[in-house]
């Protein structure tokens, strides 16, 4: 699959934003760390900025943006529409939470609880846009929503840890819990790499109906790359992919985990978060570049 840069930016920044807002809301619900009201509001605004940057990036890849407002209508069947609806619903809920904090209104637990729930739901719904596609075997797995949720909790959690240190709070035990989350996410991602080597059910034989014979492409029927080629025939050398996987793994998991475990100061954590986000950008790029759509079978690929 062709990795659209706007979609990569969208999923990682808004993922981190939903994660951060989720941690903030969880803190409100379970009273984990004592933070001043202004600190909470600042963190909330930071999260909403990350989310909004991501969401606006997601509209760049639309070819006909003037109809984007219509994307709320397919709610009953479309995961993309559900994402749009929940993403918009979060804004008034988050505003009510912030206003409640500022003016000291009651039912703050209700609004923060709703915020937490919505953050998790939105990340899950976003991942289901990909996981629901049977045409892309590498995406059609429960591992995809699991990973998206873990990535949001992990990158948002690291941002949350930075916010805590900035507000002069001790993160003595939290850094170990967070390191554990990073380790769990890393192992699920490793599992994903192992899983997606398994062959898919569709082949050039099932695509052409000649199930008893060897089938090969003689001619694709066009002299220059078409929309289908550009969208689905994205190819990178295997060597390069493997190298990028290593870079991704070190940046996303190894460096942040080491920093969290050994040197968790506010500045090192910020550096670790930036490295993690860069790693996640590569991770999301690989998520697209390594996904193989079944249309490739009609272009001569034997298996997807």
């Amino acid at each position: 699959m062709h990795p659209a840069f706007s979609v990569l930016i969208f999923t990682i920044t808004s993922g981190a934003g939903y994660g951060l807002l989720g941690w903030l809301s969880a803190n409100e619900l379970f009273a984990l760390w004592p933070l001043s009201i202004m600190a909470k509001i600042t963190i909330g605004i930071t999260a909403m900025v990350l989310i909004s940057v991501g969401l606006s990036a997601s509209t760049w890849h639309l070819a006909n943006r003037k109809n984007a407002w219509r994307s709320f209508s397919g709610f009953r069947t479309s995961w993309l529409s559900r994402e749009a609806v929940f993403a918009i619903v979060l804004y008034p809920v988050a505003t009510m939470y912030a206003a409640g904090l500022y003016f000291g209104w009651p039912y703050i637990g209700l609004w923060s609880g709703l915020c937490l729930l919505l953050c998790l739901v939105i990340v899950f719904v976003t991942s289901m846009i990909y996981a629901s596609l049977k045409t892309i075997p590498q995406w059609h797995t429960p591992l995809v929503p699991t990973l998206y949720l873990l990535f949001a909790i992990m990158s948002g959690g690291l941002a949350w840890a930075i916010m805590l240190t900035w507000n002069g709070l001790d993160i003595a035990n939290f850094n170990h819990s967070l390191a554990l989350i990073v380790a769990v996410t890393a192992s699920v991602k490793l599992g994903y790499f192992v899983w997606f080597r398994l062959p898919a059910t569709s082949s050039i034989q099932s695509a052409t109906g000649f199930t008893q014979h060897r089938v090969s492409l003689l001619d694709a029927g066009h002299s220059a790359p078409s929309f289908l080629n550009k969208e689905f025939m994205f190819d990178v050398e295997q060597v390069k992919l493997v190298r990028l996987r290593w870079v991704m793994f070190i940046a996303t998991f190894v460096i942040p985990l080491s920093v969290l475990y050994w040197i968790p100061t506010s500045m090192t954590l910020l550096g670790a978060w930036l490295v993690m986000m860069a790693g996640l950008l590569i991770e999301r790029w690989l998520f697209f570049a390594e996904a193989r759509h079944v249309v490739r079978l009609f272009h001569g690929q034997q298996k997807v």
Binding site: M1, H61, L62, A63, N64, R65, K66, N67, A68, R70, S71, S78, L80, I129, L133, K134, T135, I136, S202, A207, S226, F227, L228, E231, F232, H293, V294, V295, F298
Partner: peptide
Amino acid sequence: CMGCNLCSWACPYGARELDPGSG
């Protein structure tokens, strides 16, 4: 149509193509 391409991803037969003019 807002030109998000998702339907072309869902189609296994490559039957849907984005019009570069109208988007």
